[in-house]
């Protein structure tokens, strides 16, 4: 495991533990934790807070009927489905969304491709692939953007980001990440608002590309 220097912010981890984090961001958190031992430990600490609060709750009596139902279920032969495994590039939560297959890339202009994994009311999460030396197309965000590097590296105003690193950007950040030479840079990017790529195509066409 290479050294990771940009981690998930504590406030985002708390929101993940509480369940209030929007799904696109929860995916980035789960993917990062799959490959970051530090944040896995941090997550355990946050879960311990949840556990302590649970232990403190005033108990509300549970019916014997419920207890019986649970005990009746103990002997059921339930085979839990085998968990999806990650690959050298794509951590398990991403592989799960890809249904175990290689991503289907679509061009976003010169040197840039994307594969949208999910897009909905809560925002979107996609894979971006940037050719060595190219920039992520000029864009602004309407809200929060979390980007996790899965392969290669990029640099922008916020520093250098390599495999495992997470960049947090919000509405007013206009950054221009540029992929380093070497392997193409592959990132998992989540936003809670549509990303707006500027000057790539007329606004009217954007809905077609779901960006």
């Amino acid at each position: 495991m290479t050294e990771i220097s940009h981690h998930i912010p504590q406030s985002v981890l708390t929101a993940y533990v509480s369940g209030s984090l929007a799904r696109p961001f929860a995916l980035v958190v789960a993917a990062h934790i799959s490959i970051c031992e530090d944040c896995r430990a941090e997550l355990a600490a946050h879960e311990a807070v949840g556990g302590a609060l649970l232990d403190d709750f005033d108990p509300i009596m549970v019916s014997d009927d419920l207890r019986d139902r649970v005990f009746a279920g103990l002997d059921d032969d339930i085979v839990e489905p085998a968990p999806v495994k990650g690959t050298a590039v794509y951590p398990a939560p991403v592989m799960e969304l890809l249904n175990g297959k290689a991503p289907k890339w679509r061009s976003l202009g010169p040197g840039a491709k994307q594969c949208i994994l999910e897009a909905g009311e809560a925002g979107s999460v996609r894979l971006l692939q940037i050719a060595p030396g190219f920039e992520v197309p000029d864009h602004t965000h309407g809200g929060l953007e979390l980007t996790l590097v899965l392969q290669g590296a990029f640099k922008d105003e916020g520093g250098r980001f390599a495999r495992g690193d997470v960049e947090v950007a919000d509405d007013d950040v206009e950054h221009t990440p540029r992929a380093e030479m070497g392997e193409p840079c592959i990132c998992l990017a989540a936003t809670d608002a549509p990303l707006e790529f500027k000057g790539l195509m007329p606004r009217l066409l954007q809905p077609l590309f779901r960006i």
Partner: peptide, 12 residues
């Protein structure tokens, strides 16, 4: 993990 934290996470 401690039991309560582990169960909390399953419940969540």
């Amino acid at each position: 993990a401690e039991v309560s934290g582990w169960i909390f996470q399953i419940a969540r």
